[in-house]
């Protein structure tokens, strides 16, 4: 694991982003954070850095419901480029949806490590980081 820890948040909800960043700060996790308000922005970032693995995040917290490109659309695109990326990126889907359909769909993607229903508590976050 390299330092510093790189956390990526893809979510259009600024309050949520705020709470995650605050939590990470309180958990005293030494980290760097990248934030994208929709899937398209995040995808563009990854594509730009696909030959520079060091710039890519360790963990992606991916929301489902977003404008322009939602979480599933992002996963579809990401699937195509995943083999080319020389870095183990752990993707967690974090959504307020409790729809079993969404959960099943999320878990059907091999690169999705887990599905987490919002809210993502500081304890959850701590555990996620520890798992890496």
């Amino acid at each position: 694991m390299q330092s510093p820890f790189h956390l990526c948040i893809i979510d259009d909800d600024d309050i949520y982003r705020f709470t995650i960043i605050q939590s990470a700060k309180f958990l005293e996790i030494e980290h760097k954070t990248s934030v994208f308000v929709n899937g398209e922005d995040a995808l563009n970032f990854i594509l730009e850095n696909q030959n520079n693995p060091a710039a890519l995040p360790d963990i992606i917290l991916l929301d489902i419901d977003m404008p322009v490109m939602d979480g599933f659309q992002f996963l579809e695109e990401y699937k195509a480029i995943d083999p080319k990326i020389n870095r183990d990126i752990k993707i967690y889907m974090v959504s307020s949806s409790v729809d079993p359909e969404d959960i099943a769909k999320a878990k059907s993607y091999s690169m999705v490590v887990d599905y987490i229903s919002k809210p993502l508590t500081p304890e959850n976050l701590k555990q996620l980081v520890a798992d890496i």
Binding site: I15, Q22, S23, F26, S95, S96, V98, D99, D102, K118
Partner: peptide, 25 residues
Amino acid sequence: TQITSHNLRAPVSNLNSLLDIYKMM
């Protein structure tokens, strides 16, 4: 269902998260 999961749960979970942070602050 959509509305409850996204449009209601989202702000509620945000409130919870903010409260957690408030306690730590």
